[in-house]
C-alpha cells in the first residue's frame, strides 16, 4: 500500500470498526510472546492510517497479536478456578503464554482487596502474587510453597474461616440443576466454550466437559 495515498484518504480511518490505535499497540504489544523490539520500531514509524487499516499486512499482524493477548487474559478471568484459605490467600493455576499475568491478578485483586492473590502460571512456571496494596511480583516457586510461606505469616480471618467447607460438588450440583434438556444446543455451547478452553487448568476437569461429552453411557441408549 502506498503510504502517501493512505494518509490522504481519511476515509480509511474514520469510523472504522476494527483495528487498534498506535498508542494501544505500543502499550500492549510487548505482552505478546512473539514480540520483538523491531516490531515496535516498525509500529512507531508506521502512520496510524495504515495501522488502523486491516488491509495492510502489518496492521493485520499486530491486530491479530493484540486480539490473542486480550483473549487470553479474558479466558483466564473467566475460567480460572480459585480456592481461598482461612488466612485470606486466594490461589489458582493459570496457563498464560503472553505477559498478561498483571491483568489477571488485578482482576482478582479488585474482587478480593483484602486477600493476597497467588496464581501459578504453568507456561512460565512462575507464581504471580499481588498483595493488598496492589503490588505485583512473580517468583520462581511452586504454588504450594508460595501459599504455605505467605499463609504462615498471616492470621486466621474469621470471615474466610466461615466459608471453609467442602467445595467439590457445590458447583457441579448447581451446574447440573440448571440444565434444560429440551434446549440442548451443542453448536452454541461449543461457540461459547471453544475446545481449546478445555485445555486451561480450571477447565480440564470441569463439569462442563463431562456434561457435554460425546461419550454416552450404555443406559442412555435404552431410554
Amino acid at each position: 500500500m502506498n503510504n502517501r495515498n493512505s494518509c490522504k484518504d481519511p476515509m480509511e480511518v474514520l469510523g472504522r470498526s476494527k483495528g487498534y490505535s498506535q498508542k494501544e499497540l505500543i502499550k500492549n504489544l510487548p505482552r505478546h510472546y512473539k514480540y520483538n523490539s523491531n516490531l515496535l520500531n516498525q509500529i512507531k514509524n508506521t502512520p496510524e492510517v495504515i495501522l488502523r487499516n486491516l488491509g495492510s499486512p502489518i496492521a493485520k499482524k499486530v491486530d491479530k497479536m493484540l486480539k490473542e493477548i486480550f483473549a487470553e487474559a479474558y479466558r483466564a478471568k473467566q475460567f480460572t478456578r480459585t480456592e481461598i484459605n482461612n488466612k485470606s490467600v486466594l490461589f489458582g493455576v493459570v496457563l498464560l503464554k503472553h505477559k498478561v499475568m498483571d491483568l489477571v491478578l488485578d482482576y482478582f485483586h479488585k474482587r478480593w482487596p483484602q486477600c493476597i492473590i497467588c496464581l501459578y502460571n504453568e507456561h512460565t512456571q512462575l507464581t504471580g502474587i499481588i498483595n493488598e496494596k496492589g503490588i505485583t511480583q512473580e517468583i520462581k516457586q511452586s504454588l504450594k510453597e508460595v501459599v504455605k510461606k505467605i499463609s504462615r505469616k498471616r492470621q486466621i480471618s474469621p470471615y474466610f474461616e466461615d466459608i471453609q467447607f467442602s467445595n467439590d460438588e457445590i458447583f457441579e450440583t448447581l451446574y447440573q440443576s440448571q440444565n434444560i434438556k429440551e434446549r440442548k444446543n451443542t453448536r452454541y455451547f461449543n461457540s461459547m466454550i471453544p475446545k481449546h478452553c478445555f485445555k486451561l487448568p480450571g477447565m480440564r476437569k470441569g463439569v462442563e466437559k463431562r456434561f457435554t461429552s460425546k461419550n454416552k453411557k450404555i443406559e442412555e441408549y435404552f431410554k
Binding site: Q178, N179, T186, S191, M192
Partner: peptide, 17 residues
Amino acid sequence: ICHSYTPDGRCMSLFKT
C-alpha cells in the same frame, strides 16, 4: 463475565436457585 455455560449455550454466571 461468564464463568460457565450450560449445554444449551446459555451463560450460567449467577447463583440462581
